[in-house]
Design a binder for these strands. Structure first.
Lengths: 274, 274
DNA sequence: TGAATAGTGTCTGTGAGACAATATTAT
DNA sequence: ATAATATTGTCTCACAGACACTATTCA
């Protein structure tokens, strides 16, 4: 390698095409919790996990569903690109987002070599005016975890999408991020992996961070909050235990939720980190 | 957008240069634990966290230290690229590795737009024959965690490198991956961020996975193992508590370590996940 | 009144933190 | 004998799991 004397000299001589060019995209996993309106006036509204998907209208994977995504602009941060995609699909800004994983298999995209960094966004559905992007639709997430695999069923009322992801422990260790697609008909690219790793991440982080509150409205009842925990963790929690855990994260307000055929619940707000 | 009838037709028409090309690199954080030979025959050898760094011999950041890294090949997986870099620098294969984070700020590299996916590798130093790559050197890691920042001092015996990163809680949540460089003289690129997020990741994962054993030799004493935990977690542990935690992860062997001026310790091996 | 949820009290067992006590080696 | 670590025992306290009990609302 030639030994340059100054950085300017080096840059002047530098050929940016000396290395193979890649395209870089972001995919964004937008998760939320939906309120299913219930028929029984006494019962609580059942909640569901939901993901926003887009129907592709061109190749590759034409007519398949996929996560919202797009190419990263030349002067754009990865995160800015993800936020931009999020905004075009949901009309929401200032949403909690975190980077998930970067996929870069050479065969990912038949068009060319693509590196895709995925992000996870958590939104409170109450903030959504029904201004979804074109071809976008919320799908309910149904997750069944087996010993060595995870089955997922997505449903938007009209269509059902199913896929299965295998958990593949790496080397001698447990790398939770490591999954492989076992069955997948209807979802484009490696997006099943993004969905599953996002959910796993959320499942872990709900226990040691406060990210759940990004999916909650400003005022919420502890019953509602508990339901969200239960959906994410995939299991029922005992009331007293749950209340103990979140006691110092929330603050009781004077507001009350009435209207249902049972004792009204106090509304709480997120207190922030102490 | 034109509506193509078949995928072939679409691909034929597709121009891969329609979007800005990026270069993609990997950086690899190679962590290990070193045995400092002690003068007192009674005392245990002190251990240190250590990282492998490379001295850059060209621009940008000429003569600064950096993490081993390189461009991702055209037909190469991100992970394969990281493993290749790892092998050229350490002559080791089949090392535990996991993806850390992808950095892609437009100003990362003065040469061109670069996206860099970082990996963390954990190695057992006993497996190393002194076949380090050119310009490579192990640095001892000294970490001091403050309330809002983390100070790090790297030392290879000749040189000292210091930097400070800030912990910046994002939005209303705790995203542990999110750091900013506050002070940094001698380390190239955004590598301080990679180092700090790798350590944080390791700190977390040591509690709920078995990745530590990737840094251990086949046979080890519980005292040695405890020292490694203590270095990673940055605090002393109580013997009985530690033994309870790892009891079902290890298996006692008939081997014994003698030679020091105190009771010999039994050697254990990793039992694998139950 | 009854179905359904809201909210609290309390018992029990597990497990971490803390400290003490014993065992074993090389010089 | 002594310094140093290895290894085990045990007490206490905090806290999660489990269950029971009371409170309150609307049709």
């Amino acid at each position: 390698m030639k030994d340059y004397k100054t950085e300017e000299e080096f840059l002047k001589d530098y050929n940016p095409n000396a290395f193979a060019p890649f395209s870089v995209t972001t995919d964004i996993l937008i998760l939320s919790v939906s309120n299913e309106v219930n028929t029984n006036y006494r019962k609580l509204n059942e909640k569901h996990f939901s993901v926003l998907l887009i129907k592709r209208n061109n190749y590759p994977y034409k007519d398949k569903w996929c996560l919202p995504g797009g190419f990263v602009g030349e002067k754009e941060t990865l995160e800015d690109a993800a936020a931009r995609v999020l905004e075009t699909e949901t009309n929401l800004r200032n949403i909690y987002m975190e980077q998930l994983y970067t996929f870069g298999n050479p065969q990912r995209d038949p068009r060319m070599r693509v590196i895709s960094t995925s992000y996870m966004a958590l939104v409170d559905k109450n903030r959504l005016r029904d201004t979804l992007g074109e071809n976008a639709s919320w799908f309910t997430l149904n997750i069944m975890e087996e010993k060595d695999s995870i089955d997922v069923i997505l449903d938007n009322g009209n269509e059902q999408i199913k896929f299965t992801v295998g958990k593949s422990p790496r080397h001698m260790t447990t790398d939770r991020d490591d999954f492989t697609i076992l069955k997948n008909d209807a979802l484009a690219f490696d997006h099943p992996l993004v969905i599953v790793s996002g959910i796993e991440r959320l499942k872990n982080k709900i226990e040691y961070t406060d990210i759940v509150f990004n999916m909650m409205p400003e005022y919420f009842s502890l019953g509602d909050l508990q339901q969200v925990y239960e959906i994410i963790l995939g299991k029922k929690l005992l009331d007293p235990a749950f209340r103990r855990i979140i006691a110092n994260k929330v603050e009781k307000t004077k507001k009350v939720k009435t209207g249902a055929g049972h004792r009204p619940s106090a509304l709480f707000k997120y207190k922030g980190k102490k």
